[in-house]
Design a protein around this nucleic acid. Structure first.
Length: 166
DNA sequence: CGAGTTTGACCCGCGC
DNA sequence: GCGCGGGTCAAACTCG
């Protein structure tokens, strides 16, 4: 049931996502149907983000400024057709939660980038309508190079460095 | 033994 | 004000 009408373009110009077994990404729905997942207006640059009182008697020491980041954070969602929920995009993700959503009969998984200085999050959810479709929502931008990519590029960079001497 | 996953509880925003 | 739905935390657990 793979109605693939868009074979992978073999243009060698993609610097991002050169991964080995990348499933087909529905970039069309990405670009045309921007946000029907979360129609959140990313206005309200919450400058006044006082941490919540949270005067709980030492229960959850919720380190403030965690949930309050609903301000201007780039987020984009796209659909992939894959049998596997998690697709290897070159980054390392650590799962930190899973919830069952109301509309979908499948649970939604929450991942966070394992890089120290990188607090990019993503959530993965399988469509109940079409179980072969997985909706991935990225939130934030990586402030570090993709290690998979660096691994691939490393010898190339070395060679360039070598050639640059001439 | 460390990194990552599982899972239940907690917290919060929003609609009624 | 209350209940629901969704997002996150953290302890326990698993796997390499």
């Amino acid at each position: 049931m793979e109605g693939q009408e868009t074979p992978p373009p073999n243009n060698p110009s993609y610097l991002f996502n050169p991964p080995p077994h990348l499933p087909e990404i529905d970039w069309v729905s990405l670009l045309s149907g921007p946000t029907r997942l979360h129609s959140d207006e990313m206005a309200s640059l919450g400058a006044a983000e006082g941490d919540h009182g949270l005067g709980n008697s030492g229960e959850r020491k919720r380190a403030s400024s965690s949930r309050s980041h609903k301000a201007t954070r780039p987020r984009f969602a796209f659909q992939t057709k894959s049998a596997d929920d998690i697709l290897d995009d070159g980054f390392r993700w650590r799962k930190y939660g899973q919830k069952s959503v109301k509309d979908s009969m499948y649970p939604r998984s929450y991942y966070r980038c394992t890089h120290h200085t990188c607090n990019v999050k993503k959530q993965v959810q399988r469509l109940s309508k079409d179980t072969s479709i997985v909706v991935t929502t990225y939130e934030g931008i990586h402030n570090h190079p993709c290690e998979k990519m660096m691994e691939t590029l490393s010898p190339l960079l070395k060679q360039m460095h070598f050639l640059a001497r001439f």
